[in-house]
Design a binder for these strands. Sequence first.
DNA 1: TATTGACCTTCCAGTCGCTGTAACCTTTAG
DNA 2: CTAAAGGTTACAGCGACTGGAAGGTCAATA
Lengths: 128, 128
Amino acid sequence: MKISELATKSQINAKTIRYYEQVGLLSAPQRASNGYRHYQPGDVDTLIFIRRCRELNIPLDDIKRLVEVQADPNASCAVVDKIIAEQLAQVQRAQRELALLEQSLQTLASCSGEQVDQCTILHKLKAP
Amino acid sequence: MKISELATKSQINAKTIRYYEQVGLLSAPQRASNGYRHYQPGDVDTLIFIRRCRELNIPLDDIKRLVEVQADPNASCAVVDKIIAEQLAQVQRAQRELALLEQSLQTLASCSGEQVDQCTILHKLKAP
DNA sequence: TATTGACCTTCCAGTCGCTGTAACCTTTAG
DNA sequence: CTAAAGGTTACAGCGACTGGAAGGTCAATA
């Protein structure tokens, strides 16, 4: 199939698919005589897998390793475990940071329409 | 004062200060005869203000508007209000997304050391 | 047959907020 | 005199795309 069909089936932008090939996440497909990329049905599965990983915010480098590990049936899945655990830890870290951020923003409250020299938000931003 | 003194006092990297000038967040300072940037004491306050905003994850473009608004005492602080409210909304949105992400990652659980063809994580990633 | 329009190709630039590096000049201390 | 520390510019890279330009290819229609 051509790239747009793969894009539709995998729900990944054709441009992004080319990008994945460029950075080595996706292996280069065969080319037709006109230079068009020609993909196999299995590529749909690979891309859907990649998309699910991206939805979990897993970095492309890690996804690359996950794809490689799948190609080697003798590999230990400790690698997989580690990547997911680290991703989880990172998400939890980000959550804690955002919670603090939210608190700080909320203490600024709103100052509803006065002039800037009396703006309570700006006041607090200058000397918190 | 020279840039490194400003950097120390404002707790912002000298490189970052030059970058802020480059993108128009900070106005260009006077130059000494040797070409060195020469800053006024007030610049410390401006940069501290900028740093506080950045700690709240406020984008540079928005900070730019906050700085401009402060220079104009007749401006309404509705602008300020809006920027902070949007920032808060965005942080809350990000938090909700991360919470979903965390859930998804946790359902993957760990598969502790089997071989990849039986890896429960990879299984779930292929068909969630 | 000519041409339109959809699709494909490559390459380059931009996003955001810095940070690293290189190459060079000036000042200060020993 | 020399070396270290600090200043200057310009350019590249990060991550994960996305947009655009400029051009080749293909199928259908006037």
